[in-house]
Amino acid sequence: MSAIDHLFRKLRAEGRKALIPFVTAADPDLEFTAAVLAELVARGSPLCELGIPYSDPIADGPVIQASYTRALAKKVKLAEIFRMLSAVTPTLAAPVVTMVSYAIIRRHGPPQYVADAQAAGVAGLIVPDLPVEESLALTELCRAAELSLIQLVTPTTPRDRALRIIQSSSGFLYYVAVVGITGERQELPPALLDNVGWLREQSDLPICIGFGISLPEHVRQLAPVADGLIVGSAIVRRIADTAARPRHDVLQEVGDYVQSLIDAL
């Protein structure tokens, strides 16, 4: 069992839901990333998602793309991100999962990547460009290392396929709320509640919903059907101009924002 399995077991026993913030590693630098993770956990996030910057993210909208571009412009390396995590994860009262392109994992070699992630205290992986058919080897490696390999189901996923994805997913199932890329939306698709409801009937695996979520209304609407809600672009946008402002102000603003969502759970 991974730290994420333990977390959701505990949350369910307590009848609580998770607000899962996403931030991009090294935007604008790793020192800030460490500080923002601490702030998010202090505000009550029981799980954080860290985006590993990638040069060609297909599933990401302009806000997260730009954050990756900013981080990579400073030539941040994976080894440095893991070094920061090694120092930070033992101090956090919440597990961290990484969102990472398979291009990066493949380049390092899946066994090496999993070993390095584990050594850095990472609890799980979300690999947005690795469909279930291609994930067999990584699933085995993650299982052996007690890391969760969190798979995604989307509104375009046929139901028989969704069942296969649930079987292979661990930690939680990531339900993608919209057909499209990451980014804040005013309205979420009306079929969302039914689709997640159907998935719930198929499995006990915790389900977290992401893509498009940014407003307290979204949180109020979705929390009853989900174990957790993932918020990315709305946070990354608030970090985008960190270079031009006192860091303390940015941390405060991000913290207040996440707090407002947690209050809506």
């Binding site: 947005p128 469909p131 995604l152 989307t154 509104p155 375009t156 046929p158």
Partner: peptide, 18 residues
Amino acid sequence: AGRFGHFGGRYVPETLTA
């Protein structure tokens, strides 16, 4: 699986798979 030897395959978001 779309492989030429070990090259090729399909590394895309789930949204596009169907």
